[in-house]
């Protein structure tokens, strides 16, 4: 599908897949308003050699708009569906919870795996995330190497779990 170049970017060159032939590329839709975080995660993936491909947007509103576009283009472009959504919580103009609520209340999207990725470990946020149906809640590490370990572990987790078919 076409992407708005001002809104979305792909995080990993396609050629990298050739080095990881036995490991499937997984498409991650990353919703995060921090450019630093976007770069951090993608750099961590390269360092960990995990074949995540990142589609990035920087607000809840744009994320919901993107998902609505996917719903419209469902039949024509099944490959554009993300394998995983990674949500920041605190963003201007709307929180990650709003995106999570949209996903879980939309029949075609409700089975989509969603991971919260945030620097806010407040138990109230953890609880709300699970109540709204988040699959997992991850705390943004301070050390880069811990971020590398975390994305590697997340990829392993995604590799082991059976993923739902979206329709």
């Amino acid at each position: 599908m076409q992407q708005d170049p001002d809104t979305f970017s792909e995080g990993r060159p396609q050629t990298s897949h050739s080095r990881e032939k036995d490991r499937p590329t997984l498409l991650v839709f990353h919703v995060n308003d921090s450019t630093d975080d976007q770069v951090l995660f993608q750099t961590a993936c390269k360092t960990a050699k995990v074949p995540f491909v990142w589609h990035v947007t920087d607000s809840a509103e744009k994320a919901i708009s993107y998902l609505k576009t996917l719903l419209k283009m469902n039949r024509e472009h099944p490959a554009a569906w993300p394998d995983l959504v990674v949500l920041d919580l605190h963003m201007p103009g709307g929180s990650g919870f709003e995106v999570l609520e949209f996903i879980r209340s939309t029949p075609q999207l409700r089975r989509l795996p969603v991971v919260i990725f945030t620097g806010h470990p407040d138990p109230a946020y953890v609880k709300r995330a699970y109540e709204l149906g988040a699959n997992s809640f991850l705390l943004k590490p301070i050390e880069f190497q811990n971020t590398v370990n975390l994305v590697a572990s997340l990829y392993t987790t995604m590799s082991f779990m059976q993923r739902p078919t979206l329709r």
Binding site: L89, S95, E131, L138, L150
Partner: peptide, 18 residues
């Protein structure tokens, strides 16, 4: 380990805005 777990239940559901 890496995943932040909710407090073990039972829970009182009372979320709100952030």
């Amino acid at each position: 380990s890496k995943n932040i777990m909710p407090e073990p239940g039972p829970f009182i559901p009372a979320p709100s805005r952030i």
